[in-house]
């Protein structure tokens, strides 16, 4: 017993994606991604709480008393929220297509996901500029600072997601995305869906719940 040793069981896991050779049987990358997403909950939680605390804090006046909730365009935001929600569908369809080995469909779905994300970001840019036209800028009052910070952080997350999706698209074009790489797409997908669920929360709590 004293010197009983054997070789590592994973002697041939050369491509780093052999999910079944870890102690838990799950892949390192996916575990790291989920750990990161758990961590992100605390990040967005803090930003959302900051906004909730400040949402009715108008400045002392007279020029800075408008708060974002006064000028929300709910129908417009509803449309862009819906667009982001549907991009989660195209994301899973991209993954599903890659699993089947259908590269054409994979690229189509990846591109539509990125484009839906782009539409969402475009909507956000439009929303921000319309706020600015109303005179509600980042430094207007605590409510506006918190609003721009929260939605801006989310927008940066979406934009990074678009960069990742486009990189996958290019990789697929170059023939580097094969069914062996489903996990890479799945992990980008996890990030994308997470950004989507954060917006589900933001859309309800920040936009829809009425402020007295």
């Amino acid at each position: 017993m004293a010197t009983a040793t054997i070789d590592s069981p994973d002697t041939h896991a050369a491509d780093g994606h052999d999910e079944h050779h870890t102690s838990t049987g799950i892949s390192n990358t996916k575990l790291a991604m989920w750990a990161f997403l758990g961590s992100e909950c605390l990040l967005f939680g803090g930003l959302i709480s900051t906004y909730l605390l400040y949402k009715t804090r108008r400045g002392p006046g007279p020029d800075n008393t408008t708060i974002p909730t006064d000028i929300f365009d709910i129908p417009f935001t509803s449309v862009s929220s819906f667009v982001l929600l549907m991009s989660s569908l195209t994301m899973v369809l991209a993954l599903s297509a890659l699993t089947r080995g259908d590269n054409q469909a994979t690229r189509a779905w990846l591109l539509s996901t990125a484009m839906l994300g782009g539409v969402f970001i475009g909507g956000q840019v439009y929303e921000f500029t319309s706020f600015l036209r109303e005179g509600v800028g980042f430094t207007h009052n605590p409510a506006s600072s918190a609003f721009f910070t929260l939605t801006g952080f989310h927008g940066v997350h979406v934009s990074l997601g678009i960069v990742m999706l486009m990189s996958l698209f290019v990789a697929s074009k170059q023939g580097k995305l094969t069914p062996k790489n489903t996990e890479t797409v799945e992990i980008v997908g996890l990030y994308w869906h997470f950004v989507d669920v954060v917006w589900i929360f933001i859309f309800t709590v920040i936009y829809l719940i009425p402020v007295e």
Partner: peptide, 9 residues
């Protein structure tokens, strides 16, 4: 070899 390479990770 063990699975410490970090490929797409």
């Amino acid at each position: 070899h063990d699975d410490d390479d970090d490929g797409g990770d």
